[in-house]
């Protein structure tokens, strides 16, 4: 996917689909955009490293170790917003 042409909604959908497919716990009922991904176990330590690598490759962005914070990775909404910012910054 070309980073510059990622539509806003695509970012959300890509992340959401990835989480549903790779979650460490059963999320067959879907994931609430405000659900805490860390507390619920949807993202464990391995999952965090993997989703980071995934969005870096998919959106052609670089995420710094210090940006992998609970603030940015807390919910689907927060993580989508964070990725959008990175995509916007790398498009400049």
């Amino acid at each position: 996917m070309d980073a510059q042409t990622v539509e806003q909604d695509d970012v959300h959908k890509t992340i959401y689909d990835y989480l549903v497919e790779h979650s460490g716990v059963n999320v067959s009922g879907g994931i609430d955009p405000e659900e805490n991904l860390l507390d619920s176990g949807i993202l464990d330590s391995l999952g965090i490293a993997e989703i980071t690598e995934f969005v870096e490759k998919t959106f052609d962005i670089a995420i710094d170790e210090d940006e992998i914070t609970s603030q940015n990775y807390r919910t689907v909404t927060a993580f989508t917003a964070f990725c959008r910012e990175k995509i916007a910054a790398s498009a400049k």
């Binding site: 860390l38 330590s45 965090i48 490293a49 980071t52 170790e65 210090d66 940006e67 992998i68 914070t69 609970s70 603030q71 990775y73």
Partner: peptide, 8 residues
């Protein structure tokens, strides 16, 4: 004092 989640 990093808040990085990778530094579990």
């Amino acid at each position: 004092k990093t808040s990085s989640l990778l530094n579990m």
